[in-house]
Each structure stands twice: as structure tokens, then as C-alpha cells.
Nucleic acid binder design. Structure first.
Length: 277
DNA sequence: AAACAGGCCTAAA
DNA sequence: TTTAGGCCTGTT
């Protein structure tokens, strides 16, 4: 998509394919919050940034440790989402869903953060998921001063690996604490190499992630889609299951959506959650 | 008060 | 291979 880099800040030329509210509220991430004036601030890969609109344009600017290239990568600015929307619009339902979700982009999130976040998400509601993740960051992450706010980085797997599940009690995340520590130890010990998983096949990534306790099909697919940026991954949660039952039959396979099935899934999820349909 | 929330694990057919 | 029940916790 077209954008300008000026003064270490990115200006998005066509806001139709970059909608901050949809990007941050469509369910793919948990750590970007609006300040009441419409400015979203968040932390990605240890860096702070903000996204806001002014005069019909969208601006993204990061802290002093953030290069424009980091933002281009994280927000997936080089990808043509209009082409993706066309390719997944296989019927009138998907045309409506992808039209409704126009402006969503799949963020290139840190794989460890995605793994931990979606472990937390299981059998949980969004406010509590966000609260738990904020607490893990404020308790175990590093403070980052930015734009007059104190934000916190997501703690490294090594940091969490040194803790016992009991020490995660302040999170109030219940039985998920053991899963989190187990995953952290797998990553920290090198038994699970998320970097190399990103270079492996989808099947390999799925199989490997599912060896972790607390990670099943749904969580693993979320990690692959949002953390490994494999856009064919198709997480099926209760909302998607219902949408599939309503619009497609028993023999459904994500492959009908092609290589960007995961993006189709996100349009469906956002559409279903919106209550529009 | 009982059910539910963006699943997963284990035991049992 | 599929199914039922249990699981921490906070809300409604």
C-alpha cells in the first residue's frame, strides 16, 4: 500500500485499507488501547508506538528505538489487502464479510507473545484476557516511557521460564498458569524454536506447537496466523464454527479460500462478532 | 444463582 | 475417533 515516511513517522495514503479500529479491535491482538482521543498506543517487540488519524490520514509513529522499517513490517504495509479481499470473496457472504472488514491487516506479532496470549484466551472473555496480559506485562515486563505514558513490554520467555506457576498468581489466570510457564520453558530452553518454526511448513508448525500442554488446534492456528504470519492458517473458534455451519456445509475446508484463508477467517470473525450477521 | 466465556486435557466408549 | 466432564476466574 502507498505510504510516506517523513520525520520518522509513517503516513498512510489510503485509510480504506488501514483502519486502526478494525486492526486493533478485530480480535487478533490484545495490547493496543485507545486513549479516548482516538489515539491507539501499544508495544510491539519491545518498542512503543502510536497510531492516530488526522485530516483524513492515518499516522504511525514509534519511539526512538523504532525504525520505520519496523513499523512497515509489523503492520504488514507491503501486502496488498485489496487483492486478498478479492481472492477470498468466493460468494456473496464473503464479499459482505470482507467488505465489512476492509481495513483489517494481520499484524506480524511476536511469536512468543502470540503463543502466550492465545493460551490465555482459551475459554475466556476479552476483557479478562486483556487484563491478564496487561498484568503479566506490568509485573514482569520492562517499563517503556512513551508519549507521556508508561507502557510495558511483553516479558521475555526466559523471564517467565524462571517463575513457578504459583508466582503467576497475580495474573488470576487460573489453570492457564501452568500452560504459560510450560510454554515459556520450552521456548527459553530452546526445545521450541519459534524462529525456525516461522521458516518451516504450516503442518510442521501445527504439529510442533500442539506438543505443548494447553495448546490445541485453535490456539496453535492463532499462533501460526498471528505470530508466524502464515496467512493460510485458519483458527476455528465458536464464532467461526457457527459462521461455517450457517454458510457452508459439513464438507467445508479452509482451502476453498486459497492461500489467504486466515485473512478470510479474520473477516468472518470480525463480521460475526459485530452482530451485523 | 447458574451459566457462560475466542479450549484443552483426560478418561471412557 | 468421537464424546463428556472438569477446569480457574470474573461477569451477568
Amino acid at each position: 500500500m502507498r505510504y510516506y515516511i517523513t520525520d520518522n513517522q509513517i503516513e498512510i495514503c489510503d485509510p480504506l485499507d488501514f483502519d486502526p479500529v478494525k486492526i486493533f479491535e478485530c480480535g487478533q491482538c490484545f495490547r493496543w488501547n485507545p486513549d479516548g482521543q482516538g489515539v491507539y498506543r501499544g508495544v510491539f517487540k519491545g518498542r512503543a508506538a502510536k497510531v492516530f488519524s488526522r485530516g483524513g490520514k492515518i499516522y504511525i509513529s514509534g519511539d526512538e528505538n523504532t525504525a520505520p522499517a519496523d513499523l512497515v513490517d509489523y503492520f504488514d504495509l507491503e501486502r496488498d489487502y485489496e487483492a486478498i479481499r478479492r481472492s477470498v470473496s468466493i460468494d456473496s457472504y464473503m464479499r459482505d464479510a470482507s467488505d465489512f472488514g476492509r481495513g483489517i491487516r494481520i499484524l506480524r506479532q511476536d511469536p512468543w507473545e502470540a503463543l502466550c496470549s492465545f493460551i490465555v484466551s482459551q475459554c475466556n472473555n476479552i476483557p479478562r484476557i486483556k487484563r491478564i496480559i496487561e498484568t503479566i506485562c506490568s509485573n514482569f515486563g520492562e517499563p517503556i516511557g512513551f508519549d507521556g505514558c508508561t507502557l510495558y513490554s511483553f516479558p521475555a520467555a526466559e523471564t517467565i521460564a524462571r517463575l513457578s506457576p504459583c508466582e503467576l498468581e497475580p495474573l488470576r489466570c487460573g489453570y492457564r498458569a501452568e500452560y504459560i510457564v510450560g510454554a515459556a520453558r520450552a521456548v527459553a530452553s530452546g526445545a521450541l524454536d519459534l524462529g525456525s518454526l516461522a521458516l518451516s511448513s504450516y503442518e510442521e508448525a501445527l504439529k510442533t506447537l500442539k506438543t505443548l500442554s494447553g495448546v490445541g488446534d485453535k490456539v496453535a492456528n492463532c499462533v501460526i496466523l498471528f505470530g508466524l504470519n502464515m496467512l493460510g492458517a485458519f483458527p476455528i473458534d465458536v464464532w467461526i464454527k457457527k459462521a461455517l455451519a450457517d454458510h457452508y456445509g459439513d464438507g467445508f475446508s479452509p482451502s476453498v479460500f486459497g492461500e489467504y484463508a486466515g485473512v478470510a477467517q479474520q473477516y468472518m470473525f470480525f463480521y460475526a462478532r459485530s452482530g451485523e450477521k
